[in-house]
């Protein structure tokens, strides 16, 4: 019994941690789709950028917490800039071009990352609590990394604050209104330009936060976010595209399922995860939360 519990803890906690990071990216994808009916392929590159920014701030002598906060805020503005400078220009012509433009953005940002920091994997500071890296659970004799637990906790805090921002603040309501009907919102005095920019900002900030949180686990490198960004989309599809809460749940499921696949039969780990995505988008397009964004027609 204890062995089973141990195994579950060993697999679930890191899986959930990854899942939370995917979930953070998924929230961005959901908000973006609700807000402007586009998808973002550059999310992974922004995650990598955020993680690298966090690392270089640590190198400048800042602590883990302050560097994470600064990187997150900086990436908020990066997202706003991307939307105002690039995406809004293209959105006007046809939303379909955004898909390819964000692919191009992803190539540009990732290669710029490579050029600036090189291809090495760097070490990020490890989270210590009571001078120990591990939380030891005596009853099942298992060590759990504080980095995992902190990442899960911080992600939850971020998710809850996004929820409150959208539901309890004036600007959040404006964002939801603009997402529902841009024309009506515009006529009520809501600046759709502003709400879309903030959507991109939130998306990039959440991605950067996720990147900084995985830094202590994997090390920081230029390509760290590519998989996480893509799996944010996967999670969003699983949960029902366009539903924020669905994206969180979907992301977590992907994280855990991926880890379990790795345990059961590792050669097909990536193929299984991608196939799961394919099954959902082709056969169960409404996802877990029964969101009808993927319409027929």
């Amino acid at each position: 019994m204890n062995d089973t519990l141990k195994l579950i803890l060993q697999l679930m906690i890191p899986g959930l941690c990854l899942g939370c990071v995917y979930g953070l990216n998924g929230i961005g994808a959901a908000l973006l789709y609700k807000g402007s009916h586009t998808i973002n392929n550059a999310q992974g590159a922004v995650v990598g950028f955020g993680a690298l920014l966090g690392y270089s701030l640590q190198n400048r002598g800042l602590g883990l917490i302050s560097s994470t906060i600064i990187a997150t805020i900086a990436c908020f503005f990066v997202g706003v800039l991307l939307q105002v400078g690039v995406i809004s220009q293209i959105e006007k012509k046809a939303p379909i071009y955004v898909v390819i433009a964000t692919l191009a953005l992803s190539i540009v940002i990732t290669n710029a990352n490579y050029l600036i920091v090189g291809s090495y994997t760097y070490d990020s500071a490890v989270i210590l609590i009571n001078v120990s890296k591990y939380l030891h659970i005596d009853s099942v004799n298992v060590d759990i990394l504080w980095s995992n637990i902190v990442a899960i906790a911080v992600s939850f805090i971020a998710m809850v604050s996004v929820h409150f921002f959208l539901n309890k603040t004036k600007f959040g309501s404006a964002m939801r209104a603009a997402a529902m009907d841009p024309f009506a919102a515009e006529s009520c005095g809501i600046s759709v330009v502003k709400t879309r920019a903030v959507t991109w900002g939130i998306m990039s900030a959440l991605g950067a936060l996720g990147g900084c949180l995985t830094g202590p686990l994997f090390g920081v490198s230029a390509g760290i976010g590519i998989a996480a960004g893509a799996k944010g989309n996967t999670g969003a599809v699983l949960g029902g595209y366009g539903n924020m809460y669905g994206a969180i749940i979907g992301g977590m499921i992907i994280g855990i399922v991926e880890t379990i696949f790795g345990y059961i039969y590792s050669p097909y780990q990536t193929a299984f995860t991608n196939a799961l995505f394919l099954i959902f988008i082709l056969l169960l397009p409404h996802g877990i939360m029964n969101e009808k964004a993927i319409e027929e027609g």
């Binding site: 060993q10 697999l11 899986g15 760290i224 590519i226 696949f261 790795g262 590792s266 050669p267 780990q269």
Partner: peptide
Amino acid sequence: EEMLADGSGTGITGQITSVIN
């Protein structure tokens, strides 16, 4: 024997747990 997914940011905890166990 377990295969590691290439590319960072993908979970390899499953493989590592399996190997250690």
